[in-house]
Design a protein around this nucleic acid. Structure first.
Lengths: 239, 239
DNA sequence: CTAATAAATGAACGACATTCATTTAGTGCT
DNA sequence: AGCACTAAATGAATGTCGTTCATTTATTAG
């Protein structure tokens, strides 16, 4: 019931832009409602993104967020119900950064490729969001919904049977989310170490797998091309 | 430096089995080292699994774990360095439940199918582990390493070029982890709600996507078959 | 004008993971 | 045997974090 009426994503003038310099402001605000609202969802979102980019997700605490916005932590709860809500705001903003432009201008294969790589790259920097996203109803995430709309239309126009589109997108998305983790994994994650002798085939496979570019990119490319050709075969079929 | 010498996974007699009845024991243990050790890694692992199955991952706290084992929370830190360590113990145990038996007895396609479904099913019940696993060096996880060994050998025997095996496994695993989340997602996660009108193609796709069985299973089956046929094409090729 | 609501402060709470001093028991060395 | 060292437990304490609540002040609706 709180904060439902006013806030829009229009970034109303100043507060969001100025607040997070967190600088040399003379003193604290006195208690009570200020004449101009200090917080809104857009400002909270950009402050959270800023904080994450500087301090990582460990640094994204309600207290740190409040400090950046120069408010008391409890003030945040007039605009979001929980920290999870903050993460949802961040997630929805990030989704708007995913490149869906190739749907409509390129072939289905190229469009999926562009979209998937972009999607993975965006969330590879934000893996702590993945457990939240994956169980998140899209209802509360307009940008996410917009992305699905564009992608769905691309699949439909490419001749996909309507009943299979959601499954195909979910399959791709699952692969994308899982792959986002790989990007941040340490390079030696598969080093068998002292147990190399007991696992000879795997050890040999690891040793011989070095190629150009990041291993995570190689694996992602491999899986993505497999999915594209496998799923592409559904086009033009009956349900 | 602590607890490195003695403990093995051999489940030494009683402690692991009896401890977690947490029942009508008369009183507290007096301070100081007990004659027979109360804790070991195997006991901690089974107690953690028990706790998770009864209370979920929210219920898996160091305090609750200690209570189940009838020790003080700080006693746990003589055997694990952190809660993350506990999660690693749990993860490695779960990996041993994944069915790799089809490698060696069935065709490569059938073996991958069996393995992948089993792997997904096991971790669908344990999604909070996924962020931990995904970045986890296999060195500390012998069961996990053993699984990779079996799968690697299966790929090699099926004619996969050695340099591609790790990438292929990573691609499959990424898909599996991502898909595990879907299983636990709410059924109405894709309901566009009030924004249905603004996203007609996606809304139509969602409405028409109802089929027999769980939606998560449909999507997983679709993606897995695509990956199997796409990756299977690598067999017998040069690197 | 007045009641309701929105938006801020600041104090407090309850979990939780983790650390530390202390106590007691086993182990290895001479 | 005796002694130092280490292992394994208790119990108290700490610091962080998300969240709630009473209170204050300003805006808005009727």
């Amino acid at each position: 019931m709180l904060g439902t009426t006013k806030e829009r994503a229009g970034m109303p003038a100043v507060s969001a832009e100025e607040g997070h310099t967190a600088g040399t402001g003379t003193g604290r605000r006195r208690a009570g409602r200020p004449s101009a609202a200090v917080l809104d969802k857009a400002g909270i979102t950009t402050a959270a993104l800023d904080l994450v980019s500087r301090k990582g997700y460990d640094g994204l605490t309600m207290a740190a967020l409040a400090k950046q916005l120069e408010v008391a932590p409890s003030a945040l709860y007039n605009h979001v119900a929980s920290k999870r809500d903050v993460l949802l705001l961040v997630e929805d903003h990030l989704t708007s950064l995913v490149d869906v432009s190739a749907f409509g201008s390129k072939s289905w294969e190229d469009a999926v490729r562009t979209w998937a790589w972009s999607y993975r790259d965006v969330f590879a920097e934000h893996t702590p969001l993945i457990p939240v996203i994956a169980v998140l109803p899209v209802t509360d995430a307009p940008q996410t919904l917009a992305m699905y709309e564009t992608v769905s239309k691309g699949f439909l126009d490419a001749g996909f049977p309507e009943e299979r589109i959601v499954s195909a997108i979910v399959a791709l998305e699952s692969f994308i989310f899982g792959s986002a983790y790989d990007v941040t994994a340490p390079g030696d994650i598969f080093e068998p170490g002292s147990m190399a002798d007991a696992n000879p085939h795997f050890t040999a496979a690891v040793r011989s797998s070095a190629g150009p570019g990041r291993p995570a990119d190689t694996a992602f490319g491999l899986g993505l091309e497999a999915l594209i050709s496998g799923l592409g075969a559904l086009r033009g079929q009956a349900g």
